[in-house]
Design a protein around this nucleic acid. Structure first.
Lengths: 194, 194
DNA sequence: AAGAATGTCTAGCGCTGCTAGCATTCCGGT
DNA sequence: ACCGGAATGCTAGCAGCGCTAGACATTCTT
């Protein structure tokens, strides 16, 4: 039994290594630089080993994305609970979200623009993902006016943040005015709370 | 002289053909299906011909994107001028924008998520692009509160629309509640106008 | 009619994600 | 203690990608 478990442990360790290498490579040089050959070289195994752990490159990226969801959720939670609920919390969460996206662009891409295989608005969605949405929701829901669905309002605010981040990252919006745009967005959403 | 102009005319015609073929292929099967080989086969020339017209595949996609900017600008203009200025116009423009993105997903991708080579927030940006922003701005600017920069407010509303569209298209937001999310977003931005 | 210039094609480079098939290595039963 | 079988990781290769060098016609100029 012990031998078996040791092998499973080593195997799990190697899987962790693959995900970590993919993430590091992506954060250092972008996802274009993450090829199966480079990844294999990085972990000092041959290419086919990757496919004994993951169905394909997409699955590796999805694993990286899940890591990202957990970190984003944690940062949103920290930001949202550091200030009293209300407008300040909404501002704090919005800033934490966009700061995360700007600090970890490759991670953010894996989470929200590249990978398509992950379930989202369903119960099968990764727990970390739902947790992140929950954090956002806690800050947004108080701003719901009478008759507004808090969940939908959260999704809409989230979309605003996501739009700001992606348009800025791809050069469609100039970087320098980001803070003011974010303040505008947050202001419009906080208005309902008063 | 006439021979020269005939040649130039034929060459321009072929360039038009390349862009049209790329767009059709992308709209029918997605950008992944648009390879230089398939594109060459489609226009019944060999691959290198593409490179005598465009610097690379990206440039072809950029040409398709510019077509898209013109169409989007026209649709936004039609929507924005069909109703009196104010909240109704903001709603109309928002609906026109997201409808365009949902009706022409491949075109939208070329414009806002894939191509990176086009200049945006500068005077060198394609005229059609600036025109589209102008249309958006006409509907948004009246909603600016005292002290709000109308340009930044337009960018922020645009980001909201873009976020809704991209998150929905990639499966992050369920399609069915789109109208209600759009109404929420528009409502929050129209509030300032009253 | 000979030479220069233009235009197009064939062939191929280096890369991608992915996989079939072969060694080797290690484990469990006698 | 040994041997058969299963598990494991490797080498080698496939089909396709964007892109380009160089050969080949054809067309225009002198």
């Amino acid at each position: 039994m012990s031998i078996q478990t040791r092998r499973e442990r080593e195997r799990a360790e190697r899987e962790r290594l693959i995900v970590a290498a993919a993430r590091e490579l992506a954060e250092a040089e972008g996802w274009d630089a993450v090829t199966t050959r480079r990844l294999a070289a990085e972990i000092e195994y041959s290419q086919p080993v990757l496919y004994s752990h993951f169905k394909g490159k997409d699955a590796i990226m999805a694993a990286v994305a899940v890591e990202g969801f957990a970190e984003l959720a944690a940062e949103l939670r920290a930001a949202g609970t550091a200030v009293p609920p209300g407008r300040a919390a909404l501002t704090a969460v919005g800033e934490a979200y966009t700061a995360f996206a700007r600090r970890r662009p490759a991670l953010y891409d894996a989470m929200f623009t590249l990978t398509v295989g992950l379930p989202f608005a369903t119960p099968e969605a990764p727990a970390a993902l739902r947790a992140g949405f929950e954090e956002l929701s806690r800050a947004v829901a108080p701003a719901a006016a009478e008759g507004d669905d808090p969940g939908l309002l959260t999704e809409t605010y989230w979309a605003g943040l996501h739009g700001l981040v992606t348009l800025m990252r791809s050069g469609r919006l100039p970087e320098e005015a980001h803070d003011r745009r974010l303040a505008l967005l947050t202001g419009r959403f906080a208005a309902g709370a008063a």
